[in-house]
């Protein structure tokens, strides 16, 4: 596995994450991310074939609840902290022309 990321790859990952990174900062990110990936590369020194991955320390599965309404409508409260709303709806820039 190639452990170093170039500027173009970093820009691509940043786009996947919908994260704007200033172009002059990209080389720094590329250097730091490469160092981190190089660091985690140590994992590959161990053979883990047949080892069950661990998702929860207690190895329990996700608890399910009854499919009933448990929340009250608090739209007005929640929309008080929204950047932009109108008639109870959240406003975002136009998506469809």
């Amino acid at each position: 596995m190639l452990m170093s990321l170039d500027a173009e790859q970093v820009a691509r990952i940043a786009y996947l994450a919908r994260l704007q990174i200033d172009s002059e900062a990209i080389p720094d990110y590329a250097r730091n991310l490469s160092a981190i990936l190089d660091f985690v590369e140590q994992m590959n020194a161990v053979d883990t074939s047949g080892i069950e991955p661990m998702a929860h320390p207690q190895d329990v599965s996700q608890r399910l609840r009854d499919d009933v309404v448990t929340e009250s409508n608090q739209r007005d409260l929640f929309q008080q902290i929204a950047p932009a709303t109108e008639n109870g709806l959240y406003l975002v820039p136009k998506v469809i022309e």
Binding site: V40, V46, T48, P53
Partner: peptide, 15 residues
């Protein structure tokens, strides 16, 4: 598989 799954397997070894 190379990263997250591998890390979760190593987590098991540590545990």
């Amino acid at each position: 598989d190379a990263y997250y799954l591998k890390a979760q397997q190593i987590r098991r070894l540590i545990s």
